[in-house]
Design a binder for these strands. Structure first.
Length: 287
DNA sequence: TTAGGGTTAG
């Protein structure tokens, strides 16, 4: 580009950084960032968020914090850093930072709320989740699909499935993620029939089930020992054009193995190509 | 005048 006499600007560099985020190429990301600094390119909040996000995805929180600390007006990039901590597995820090943001007079939008709710869910402590729920109600964004879905998951993971179901029932609009969340939650609590009903609702609503929907359904079958239903959903994936991944096979192997069908589980693993089945054998051996 | 951060599963 430079050879053609065209000078890359902030937009070009951010485009590059965003592309890198998905592949977690930390060294290249650092080079691009260094180039921006060297050329004196002014990066605004969107650009800095992209940088913070890129470093977070690479689990390089020190560098993410360094970008954040260099900001004159850090407020607008806080969300990226909070999401980053959560992504890097430091949920406690994500919640601490969120609290600090609010205490400093900052505001949280639905995207940030969904992110901190996910952090609370991972910690399985209902207190912060409830506080965030209250904040969402006060700021009139508890009905946002992402916020509600994160609330369902948070309540379910904290041991309050009923509360999660209540949130789900009050949702004015649902997407496949909301359904997936509730299907997985029901499955984990051993409520397979209710999870199956939810799946029927997905189809009735004209939504397209995805890999996660079936992972939730197979997990539900596994928790309730429903072998026939498990096979049914496993085969149904094909009809929806979804290829079974490792997690689907793991659920099936566990389901079969724990219900006296070790031979079927063995045959299922054997039918898989070499690199795929090696990670699944472990689950068979554990059984 | 284009560029950020988000919810399920694993």
């Amino acid at each position: 580009m430079q050879n053609m006499g065209i000078r890359p600007d902030g937009y070009t560099m951010v485009g590059l950084i965003m592309g890198l985020s998905d592949h977690c190429v930390l060294r290249v990301g650092e080079t691009v960032h260094g180039f921006c600094v060297k050329c004196g390119l002014i990066l605004n909040d969107h650009a800095c968020s992209a940088l913070v996000s890129m470093y977070s995805r690479c689990k390089s929180m020190e560098l993410a914090c360094r970008v954040f600390d260099s900001l004159v007006q850090p407020d607008l990039v806080s969300s990226a850093l909070i999401a980053g901590f959560s992504l890097a597995g430091d949920h406690v820090k994500a919640l601490e930072f969120f609290r600090e943001l609010l205490m400093d007079g900052g505001k949280a939008d639905p995207v940030l709320l969904a992110s901190v709710l996910a952090a609370s869910a991972q910690l399985a402590i209902v207190g912060p989740g409830c506080e965030i729920h209250g904040y969402a109600i006060r700021h009139d964004c508890n009905m946002e699909v992402a916020v509600s879905s994160a609330l369902i998951d948070m309540y379910a993971k904290c041991g309050f499935l009923e509360m999660g179901i209540k949130v789900f029932k009050n949702m004015p609009k649902r997407n496949i993620i909301s359904y997936n969340t509730v299907i997985s939650s029901l499955g984990l609590y051993g409520c397979a029939c209710e999870a199956f009903q939810m799946f029927e609702e997905v189809l009735g609503e004209g939504l397209k089930p995805d890999e996660t929907t079936f992972a939730g359904l197979l997990c539900a079958c596994c928790h309730s020992g429903l072998v026939n239903e498990g096979w049914e959903y496993f085969r149904l994936m094909n009809e929806f054009g979804i290829q079974a991944k490792t997690e689907h096979h793991v659920h099936m192997v566990k389901l079969l193995g724990m219900n006296g069908k070790a031979e079927e589980a063995f045959d299922l693993i054997k039918s898989l190509p070499e690199p795929v089945n090696s990670s699944i054998w472990v689950h068979f051996v554990v059984l």
